[in-house]
Design a protein around this nucleic acid. Structure first.
Lengths: 337, 337
DNA sequence: CCCCTTGATTGCATCGTTGTAATATCGTGA
DNA sequence: TCACGATATTACAACGATGCAATCAAGGGG
């Protein structure tokens, strides 16, 4: 099997503790000894057993990241940024998929599997305020993105309401009055759907436009297929609209595809606005005007926050909520007036 | 901190080994004792320390998956399937990003971080045959997808050559004669780019069409932006073509976008064929005809293969190569003749 | 010349588990 | 009542590493 400190020690003719001292850069090691040990290490191809080190130190050097599914581009790109940020801090990342399912999210929070990590970054979708007590866990926990809970936990999120309001105002300023929405989900009491809807309604109210329920289409999951389905539903309803606000890019792209199939011109007849600024948003036809929620910053802040908890010794500091800035990315799917 | 076997034991008034016996379902435990211990476990919220268990058992219950980047949709979707398959087998998955960079791939293979896992599924991009010896590692290793090496390692891959040949023949059968290629990369001696190019050339040869180097555009990375860049280059060259074969969907979509910007109609003027069957390929305008390489099956087979090595006790069985079947998905970006 | 400080090396306990082997307890039949 | 085989429980030693305290050799000052 793999070589241990003892194997190296007997080859080098020193005690295994001396080998440990060499490996850990202990100051008091004679150069000749160090060299002897290093030769033995190289010869045996010794690498420290991180499991044993973890047991001793109480730190694993790994963090867990739980997202609904990697099949959703937003979470895939987010995960990529989290992994990169963690790696820069010398941590590896264990990725879990919850499917956005309440039961799986709750199970994860109690899972002994997390004992293999130093902390968890969780993007919850299914949990609600009634589950907030489940957030009372023994390890550092950072909530990510969407939902807000009335519970003292570190939280990194985006300006959902502000961004949605700004996006809607942008559509109004582009001369649109009947703005449909794709992605509403009244089940998530405090999820991003509700928050973005609030921003939308605030913008309408601010510009003196009446809120029309018939312009709002539901979508519980946010795949392209869900956006397509919602748009078909809107078209079947027969309500007129001159813009669509997709609550994320995949919904918007699915909806845009259905619009175009139906012979509706984008952006001339109907403007389309997304949310997320996925890589693919720049390459659709027309390219998608969208809101960049600052994914990379969110990822970096989440890892930073977790690290502070790790180093700061746990429950010391009060929980923090950190917000990323958003930016409206103007492309072709909304024509400027 | 977290409760240990000892804590539970002193609360229940038994030895810590008895608690261990209860936790592990040891047969000889008196029902009354078991109940007493279980109450104590519940009261303290005890969960076993998996790090300690790993140290003792030599198994961590985690596997590592290394892909170029999650920002590439193909690898994101693949990672999602691998994580799901691993979870079904009771394993968690640690995700690493190599950037497709040779040095990082080699570093990963030697990294002590892998000591926290039971095995590695690696999708190499940068490594070449000259690095094959680096695949001689002490832990179970399964190579994924693309490259083939002359080295005795388990390997799960797709029918790159056959699929590319079939795709090209499909274009020819649709009446196309001057088929451009986006994604060639002569640096990867045995990577998917070379294999897909070989399939393309075999198809041309089989149908009596001359290979024209000017129709081949390079792209070292396979983002949408790379496809767009390659297509601009092709257009600037001024060579006529009536079809484009993108070596993956993101390249094809990037290329298609540039074609349409240039006023070229797809599929009337130029047919576009992709490779991967990403979720988004069904929602572009026009939707993308592409090749489904059997991502989910590949992921499942990779995890299965790794598990066999884990349980089969290592180097016992000879290395295997397993192939997933592909399927051509007909959509709108290629007009049938 | 000896004591004391400094530098170099080592032994031991420990992290929380589990496997093995030893011990303690029990019920049963003679 | 005692011996016996079964069932229950426990003690001890690992797994591979690190922190602490102890040991040992060498060098400097009185």
């Amino acid at each position: 099997m793999a070589a241990t400190l003892h194997d190296v020690a007997s080859l080098a003719g020193v005690s295994f503790k001396t080998v440990s001292n060499v490996v850990n850069g202990h100051p008091h090691v004679r150069p000749s000894t160090r060299e002897k040990v290093e030769r033995a290490i190289a010869e045996l191809g010794y690498t420290p057993n991180l499991t044993a080190r973890s047991l001793r130190s109480g730190r694993t050097g790994a963090i867990a990241l739980a997202v609904p599914e990697l099949n959703l581009s937003y979470f895939a790109e987010l995960a990529g940024f989290v992994i990169a940020a963690a790696e820069q801090a010398g941590l590896v990342t264990l990725v879990e998929q919850t499917g956005g399912d309440r039961a799986r999210e709750l199970a994860l929070l109690r899972s002994p599997r997390l004992r293999m990590t130093d902390g968890l970054i969780l993007a919850p979708l299914g949990m609600g305020q009634e589950d907030a007590a489940a957030l009372d866990v023994a390890f550092p926990l950072v909530l990510l993105g969407e939902r807000t809970f009335d519970w003292p936990t570190d939280h990194v999120t985006m300006r959902n309401v502000d961004a949605a309001r700004a996006g809607t105002e942008y559509l109004v300023d582009a001369g649109r009055r009947r703005i449909a929405v794709v992605g509403e989900n009244e089940d998530e009491v405090m999820g991003s759907a509700r928050l973005r809807l609030r921003g939308y309604r605030e913008a309408l109210a601010g510009r003196g436009i009446a809120y029309d329920e018939r312009l709002v289409a539901r979508a519980t999951l946010w795949h392209r297929a869900d956006g397509a389905r919602a748009m078909r539903e809107l078209l079947e309803r027969g309500v007129a609209f001159d813009a669509v606000f997709g609550f994320n890019d995949t919904l918007a792209l699915g909806a845009m595809r259905v619009l175009q199939e139906a012979g509706v011109r984008v952006p001339e007849d109907v403007a389309v606005l997304g949310f997320d600024d996925l890589d693919e948003a720049a390459y659709s036809l027309p390219s998608l005007t969208t809101i960049d929620p600052g994914r990379e910053r969110i990822a970096r802040m989440a890892v930073e926050t977790l690290l502070e908890r790790l180093d700061g010794g746990g429950a010391a500091a009060p929980p923090r909520t950190r917000l990323a800035d958003f930016a409206l990315i103007e492309r072709e799917s909304v024509a400027k007036s």
